[in-house]
Every structure is written in structure tokens, then in C-alpha cells.
Design a protein around this nucleic acid. Structure first.
Lengths: 248, 248
DNA sequence: GACGGACACGAACACTGTTCTACAGGCGAT
DNA sequence: ATCGCCTGTAGAACAGTGTTCGTGTCCGTC
């Protein structure tokens, strides 16, 4: 049989929940034009998140987009949490992992992080789901393995490399979530609430004298694009790793 | 008059929304034992989060704890989002900011970050609210000012210091959220789903050969307490800052 | 042809944040 | 003292949410 959603999830986490007797897959119900599949669910879910943000991702929303009721989804997906995990998994599967090269390892690790960031930002707010994803998911584990390989090729000490993978992934998640939330705030037409750079500078200037450095360095605090800050922080975390080889 | 919740929020963000004529505070309705105040709301909200986690923080939950209906809260609080911001503000207000000392600036900045982490972890999941908090909140700005002051005292170049404050705060938030979520997963009695260190090691060992480094360095990947990883990452971010003075 | 199993689905439950409406009571002005 | 206002307190309701139950309906196999 086609495995139950629970079994699918267990497989994703490399858990064998006793032998499940597989049987022949039945054909789809004849009445429907398209049968509901996990892939179809994931696909429409991505569509919703891409166009309306993660907050709009609802079981009912997915169901009606598939022209059915909410309960129909639970035959293919354990949970909303499970759906989230599937999305993160699919997203991680898109990441290209380069063959570790000791000469260009810095560029390589930055490339992976940037890919992750771009994927997260393409689906605003989805990084919130990435936080909840268990570390045993095979797709996320694949990315972690790839990052670990690059760092090790760069000569980083194993312990530092292992922890750095975690830290980098966590930071990329957090960065993407923050940017997504900030963008969302901009969209909602709380017009006098939006914070453009000029507005922020003006507000910093208006602060009381209890904030001397913030006022003094308002330019620095608001300088740079969000991408600049991303690169800066990545450089910080990568630069300090013990054992790093120099690259050309 | 006592300002409307909207005005309170605006004041928190240093926004003057036109002159609001203050008037005498009316006494509370006689029938009630304790009148509902913003402080009372914040207090019970913290109590709920501390004992049951951020997910349990509900308008109705707060209201019933105050022996009233949900709508009564909206006279003191604009939103749930607003309540979240109030919690984060109160939490940041508890942070002790040392007088910047060029000799011990590293210890100082780590101390501030650790205080933040401990506050976040005392109220599991609340760091999720910290992500959404606008950067113009006065309480969070106070902490940022304090951190900036310490970094500048350490000789860090202003641009790097400004960006580093953001990065550090973001990482502390993310770290706290991740730990909170992991703890919550442990609590829910998905018994065969929990991931102790031994279980994680066993699962890494069972991975297919597509994950050679993960299997080889499973010990390193699972090594150390969560606090060890926190200190490690902070060290990474602080160590790489340009212009840093050496301390004894 | 009849059985069984997998799938789809409508209805319902227990929640959530938020708003509308009415109601109480103390203050200021008449 | 009496009137009205205005603030703070609530009850009820609305539009959502995730999830489950029971029923139906079709397919492939016996």
C-alpha cells in the first residue's frame, strides 16, 4: 500500500517503525481530475507561501486551492507541523552542495549559506518553520553534511567545524526570519509605522540623551543593505574558526 | 486621562501622535477587587509563559487568570502583538548594563548576551516575540545602546560595532528560540521521538554512507552542552571584530 | 458479482484574536 | 443634588485556525 503519512515521516527521519507491508498502489479515484498527492500539497503550499507569505499557509487554504476540504489533506500529511517539515525538506533539497575544495572553501561555505538565505527569502516567513524542524530530518542533514565537509576541507578543527555548522545554519534561519518579518511590516499599510532609513535616522536623532552612542553613530547603525550585514556576520563567524587554511 | 493603549505604544516608540490632553485618572470601578492594569496584565502573562510556555499565552488565558473576559484586555493593550512587545520590553528592562570598561569589554559583552539568553529561557518560547519586535522600541534600544557602548569601549570600529550589535542580538534570540523549541519537544511525550544524546549518536551511526562526515564526527556534532555552543559562537563573533583591544 | 481497503469529504469540536454592544460607576458642570 | 459624560468592564458574537469522526464512493482483487 502507499504508506501512511506517519510512516512517511518516520522514513524521512530514518526511523524504521516495524516492517510495513507494502502493497500495490491503487489508482486514483475516477471522479477527480487530479488525485491529491503529497507532491501536489507541497506544491500548492509553496505557491501560497511565495505569494502571500507563511502566515497565509493554512490547511484550509491549501485544501481549497486543491478544490477539496481540509480533512482530505490528513490522508497524506500527519500534521501542519509535518507539512512545514516537508516544505523545509524540499527547500533544502534544492541546495547545491559543491565538491569540497580546500582552495576555495570560504567561497563555498558562503555560497551554501547564501543559497539557503535566498531560498528562505523566496518564501517569506518559512524560516519560522525551519526553527521547529527536528535535526534528524534527512534533507536538512544532507545540507549539514555538505557544510561540514567544506569546513573540514578548509582545515577547520572537527569540533569547531561541527559547532560552526550549527551556528551558521541557525544564523541564516534567524536572519531570513527577521528580514521576512520586516518586509511584512512594510507591506501592511501602517503608513506612519513603516521605518525607512531616513525615518529611522530622524527617529534616532530625536532620541533623548540617554542614547548618546545610538545618536552619534546613527549613520553606521543604519548603513548598508541587509545583504551587507549578512556578509559581515558570516565573515565574522567564518573568520574566527581555528585551523583555517588561507585561500588565494 | 489615562492614555489610550495606542498612545502608550506610540510613546514606547518615541512617536508623538499629536498632543494628547491628559486628564485626571478616574478611580476604578468600585465593584472590582483589583482593577485591571497594564502591569497586572504583563505580570500574569509572564506567569503563564513561565509555567506553560509562550504557546499557552492567550488573550483568553490572561483574561480568565484575571477573572474577566477577553475583551477587557483591549482597553489596556492594543493587540496581542502589542502585549508581546510589552513583554519583550519588560524583559529587556531587567538587563543590567555595565559601565563600559576597555579592560574587560569582552567579559562585559558576553555578560549582556548571557543575561539576555537567561531571560529568554526563563520564559520559554518568548524569543519568538522578540523577532517581531520593531527596532524602535525604547527598551530594546536601551540594550542595544549598552552593547554598542561596550564594543566601542573595546576599540571596535564604529561600523563593525554597529553591525555586531545587531548580529549578536539576533543570534541570542535565535539560540533561545531553538533551545526553547527543543525543550518543548522533549516535554511532549512523543516518547520514541525524543532525541537524547545517545539516541542521536545511534541514529547518526545508522545513517547511510551518503553521510560520511556526519557519521565520522558524530561525537563532535553532539558534543558539549547547549551553553558550550552558545559560548563558542559568541566567541566566534566577538573574536573577529576589527580593531579589538586585547584584554588581560 | 461481492468483498475489502484506501481514499475523499462534509460536518463538527475546541480553540484562537478581535470587535460590537451594552452596562456600570465616578467625576465635572449645572 | 442632578444631569450627562466618559472611562473601564464585560457578554456575546464573528471569522478564522488545526484536527477528528463518520460516512460515502470508488478501485482492484477474490
Amino acid at each position: 500500500m502507499s504508506p501512511t503519512p506517519q510512516e512517511r515521516r518516520a522514513a524521512r527521519h530514518q526511523l524504521d517503525t516495524g516492517a510495513s507491508a507494502p502493497a500495490a498502489r491503487r489508482g486514483p479515484s475516477g471522479g477527480r481530475k487530479k488525485p491529491i498527492t503529497v507532491d501536489a500539497i507541497i506544491g500548492t503550499a509553496f505557491g501560497i507561501v511565495a505569494s502571500e507569505g507563511y502566515e497565509a499557509l493554512t490547511m484550509r487554504r491549501v485544501a481549497t486551492a486543491l478544490e477539496t476540504g481540509p480533512s482530505s489533506l490528513y490522508a497524506h500529511v500527519v500534521n501542519k507541523e509535518d507539512l512545514d517539515e516537508l516544505l523545509i525538506g524540499r527547500l533544502c533539497a534544492e541546495i547545491e552542495l559543491p565538491e569540497p575544495d580546500p582552495a576555495t572553501w570560504r567561497r563555498q561555505i558562503i555560497s551554501v549559506c547564501t543559497q539557503l538565505r535566498d531560498q528562505y527569502l523566496r518564501f517569506p516567513g518559512i524560516s519560522r518553520a525551519a526553527f521547529a524542524a527536528a535535526p534528524s530530518n534527512l534533507d536538512t542533514l544532507r545540507v549539514a553534511e555538505g557544510m561540514l565537509a567544506i569546513l573540514l576541507a578548509g582545515g577547520i578543527e572537527p569540533q569547531a567545524a561541527a559547532w560552526a555548522v550549527d551556528s551558521l545554519a541557525l544564523y541564516v534561519n534567524a536572519y531570513s526570519l527577521e528580514v521576512s518579518l520586516a518586509d511584512r511590516r512594510l507591506d501592511r499599510k501602517d503608513d506612519e509605522w513603516v521605518v525607512s532609513r531616513d525615518e529611522l535616522l530622524r527617529r534616532f536623532a530625536a532620541l533623548p540623551d540617554t542614547f548618546p552612542r545610538t545618536k552619534r553613530y546613527a549613520a553606521e547603525l543604519t548603513a548598508g543593505t541587509v545583504d551587507d550585514r549578512f556578509d559581515f556576520t558570516l565573515g565574522l563567524m567564518i573568520g574566527g574558526l581555528p585551523g583555517a587554511r588561507v585561500d588565494h
